[in-house]
Nucleic acid binder design. Sequence first.
DNA 1: GTTTATGGATACTGCTACTATCCATCACGA
DNA 2: TCGTGATGGATAGTAGCAGTATCCATAAAC
Lengths: 217, 217
Amino acid sequence: MRIAELSRQSGVPVPTIKYYLRENLLPPGELSSPNQARYGEHHLRRLRLIRALVDLAQIPIAQVKEIVAGLDSPTLPLHDQIGRAHRAITPTRNLTTTPEAHTAASRQVDDLIRSRGWTIEPDAPALTTLVDTIAAMHTLDHDYLTTFLDTYADAVEKFTTLEITAVTSRQTPDQIAESVVIGTILGETLISSLRLLAQESISAHLWTGHPAGPAGD
Amino acid sequence: MRIAELSRQSGVPVPTIKYYLRENLLPPGELSSPNQARYGEHHLRRLRLIRALVDLAQIPIAQVKEIVAGLDSPTLPLHDQIGRAHRAITPTRNLTTTPEAHTAASRQVDDLIRSRGWTIEPDAPALTTLVDTIAAMHTLDHDYLTTFLDTYADAVEKFTTLEITAVTSRQTPDQIAESVVIGTILGETLISSLRLLAQESISAHLWTGHPAGPAGD
DNA sequence: GTTTATGGATACTGCTACTATCCATCACGA
DNA sequence: TCGTGATGGATAGTAGCAGTATCCATAAAC
């Protein structure tokens, strides 16, 4: 397959494909002559993955690059694959909260982790985000929202176990690596849109007095 | 309070505050003379909210503008407030998936909504995202991930009910409006980081053979 | 009464994610 | 074999976003 065909099948414009090739998001095609290259199914799959990450999950190109670099060397154990994906989707933020709110939030998070028996490395990317978010809720005077922390954790634990076992039951290392990325990243947009739909439905029932509640009747 | 003080207390540079004023993210200060304005607690709160949305939740300035515009007219019923927040955080995407994957995904989503008894307007912003995400999982050959849809929905329903009742139990309409925004948007970053931590912990236990599981023992 | 800060306007900057152009080859049908 | 169009690779240009920087007439503070 030549570049025009790759473009047609993926829906990605040729100049954009060239850009992805330049940025090493896409491995180069196999050269048959100094200026002729062939692309295969692998390129098409990769291109679709890139577009899903960019368009749907809104991951910056630089992070997508990290992610696919990880896919091309799938010799890492699962735990490290996951860590890599997490690092790629967790932006480095410059915190704005006051030190007091931050330490209070830290303590709250530590308690949570301890009470649930979680094993978290202190430099886990999501840890900073969680602490910052809770600290922000404090400084915004809406810290009552953090009373649900344990309920959230309960819910989240439930499906995460499922996800991980499903991912590990994939056949080849490449499939596992891809599953980690797709499951972690697209899984997030999926869950978040489900949450919005649930909010929509529940608030519709409460407000418009619709007969049946979303939890069934 | 003058602008320098506002800047000091919020940690936001003066030129940035001026930018937010220009863009109407921040209401103008009260003019005491043609070129002197005073800012109050309200401005400080608003500024902190803006930074939380921008820095933590990565919401584009244009959407933050929509969100705070909604806060300044909190006469809408809760359901509409929620709808507004949802619209603000759901980017308009140009879908890339094939029509077949899209219709298959649509059917799957319709089934889910029906089986759960949810009431969803057909133009709900999250609906498109959910369909697109599932369609992407199909085209990426990882549609087995959608077998958890119901488990996700279960989990999500559980805490969403809590959230909504908590938000409605706030005192004033302004507080409710703010709660909707913070709960919906910062709630999302909170849940997503909790999910990442749970993944991290569970994979650590599975892989490194750590004695106690995260679900307790 | 001089130094500093302010509000408002306008212009500029750095970054990201592409697009556009160019050109020397290469493929392929007439 | 010739000519037209596509290709790979390089380089340059663009649009949008989120601020920054500068300027200036006026006001505040000491």
